[in-house]
Amino acid sequence: MFAVFKREFLSYFRSPVGYVAIALFSFLSGYIFINNFSSGSVNIASEVISMRSFFVVIVPIITMGSFAEDKKRGTEILYYTTPVDLFSVVFGKFLAAFALYMIMFVNIIVHMIVTKSCNGIVGIGDWGSIIVFFFLAALFISIGLLASAITDSQIISAIACFIIIIFIQLISTISALVGNTISAFLAVIGVSSESANSIGTAIVNGMNWLDPFTKTADFRYGVFSVSPLIFCVSFAIVFMFLTFRILEKKRWAKS
């Protein structure tokens, strides 16, 4: 696992990818920070939450090559024919991407120091949103890895990852849409409006249950809760396990 982590992590810095991702993050977070600063009120939590919306760009950049590139170049064979566990390969690549995220985050730490030195507040809500930031990063990186494992094209993997993350970010909007459509449809085909509505609501609630953003929304107010974190971690594990299974499938699958 450490071998894979080391190689992947260093490879971000052997190619321009790592630098560009960090530069992008610095620029965007700097923009948000200065905007806040010049208005006289710096809200680190708000900045961190805004940076979350760039997961949709930064995560695919980081993870698109993870497995797709190995498949294309034939280097994946190393992971099958040397005595390493495939899951530790997945986890090593996950850690590498996660470590890159931690490096990017140094920017925000600098912003926090500046805020503190200007008598601004770095309060519990900020720490809460930072915790959430990393747990969501873990979740999205594992999604990116899965997207990278299903294809040998970096572009397709990046697009797939992009679409999944966009979907998760818009889940509350989409669920409302789907729920309304279904209850309207049920009403048209003759289901009584009451039960059609309740089915629609059930669908909306079911889909919203999967929304990690609303689950973790309270952290920015300093209200910490363990279950949303468990949600993020457990689904990150699910996606990594799926990635692992997809890699392993190659061994026995018929084609």
């Binding site: 490879s11 190619s15 170049r73 994946e76 064979i77 190393l78 040397t82 005595p83």
Partner: peptide, 23 residues
């Protein structure tokens, strides 16, 4: 293998050290 599993973005020594880690 038929297609040697080489990381083209690494130097020979970096690559062999990585293989040492793997094995």
């Amino acid at each position: 293998p038929e297609l040697p599993p080489l990381y083209l973005d690494m130097t020979v020594l970096e690559y062999l050290n990585f293989i040492c880690d793997l094995k």
